[in-house]
């Protein structure tokens, strides 16, 4: 009975500790550099312009009023993408009615993933394409851009489907800073991402 009490106290500390981590503003992730005058520059996603599933050109500037979750995928992907897209869909459902939250999926296979194919893919997911963009552009730019989002994307004949890539979901704020990430292949990490989005929203209203 006595040991039971200690376990309870320990459990309480674990809960308190984990709650404490989830208070206050989210950190800005990535390397930061200090200028000569002591000014800190944070890791920022570079500017991008892409064609969306409706063949409309969109850029990161269009997301200045929003926070968004990004991932890298391709429609004919036989490995991790369906799982990652499924987690994106969970996040979409959680913030369906919150206009400030957007989702952005970059294809790493622009040759096959034309806007019309992306339209069909998005249509099958039954989502609002004003809220969730499926974007295509030059593949070399996308492979570079993926690094800004802490993801890896490259062509690799040995990899399933011909591309090697990671499945991180990345949360980006209005200033283009990365504020949180989760493994899109692990459904257990998604609830934390959903909570982090809420934290970021409360920071910005």
């Amino acid at each position: 009975m006595k040991s039971c009490k200690w376990i309870n106290i320990l459990a309480l500390f674990v809960i308190l500790f984990s709650c404490k981590q989830e208070e206050g503003p989210l950190p800005i992730l990535g390397f930061e550099s200090k200028g000569e005058n002591g000014e800190v520059t944070y890791h920022t996603i570079r500017d991008w312009t892409y064609t969306n599933q409706d063949s409309v050109e969109v850029s990161n500037n269009d997301l200045k009023e929003n926070i968004y979750v990004a991932d890298f995928f391709f429609t004919s992907c036989p490995s991790i993408c369906p799982r990652v897209t499924k987690e994106m869909l969970r996040i979409y459902d959680a913030y369906k009615d919150e206009d400030r939250v957007k989702l952005v999926s970059f294809t790493i296979d622009p040759k096959r993933d034309t806007p019309s194919r992306l339209t069909r893919y998005a249509g099958n997911l039954n989502i609002d394409t004003k809220k969730w963009w499926f974007l295509t552009a030059d593949k070399d730019f996308t492979y570079e851009l993926a690094n800004d989002y802490f993801n890896v994307a490259m062509e690799d004949e040995q990899a399933p489907g011909g591309f090697d890539h990671s499945g991180k979901l990345i949360l980006v704020d209005q200033n283009g800073h990365v504020r949180s990430f989760s493994e899109g292949t692990d459904p257990e990490e998604t609830p934390k991402m959903i909570r982090d989005i809420k934290r970021l929203l409360s920071e910005t209203n």
């Binding site: 369906p82 799982r83 897209t85 499924k86 869909l89 249509g123 099958n124 997911l125 039954n126």
Partner: peptide, 10 residues
């Protein structure tokens, strides 16, 4: 998917 649920309409 492990639980057989697939991915929406895709």
């Amino acid at each position: 998917m492990t639980d057989g649920s697939g991915l929406a309409g895709n």
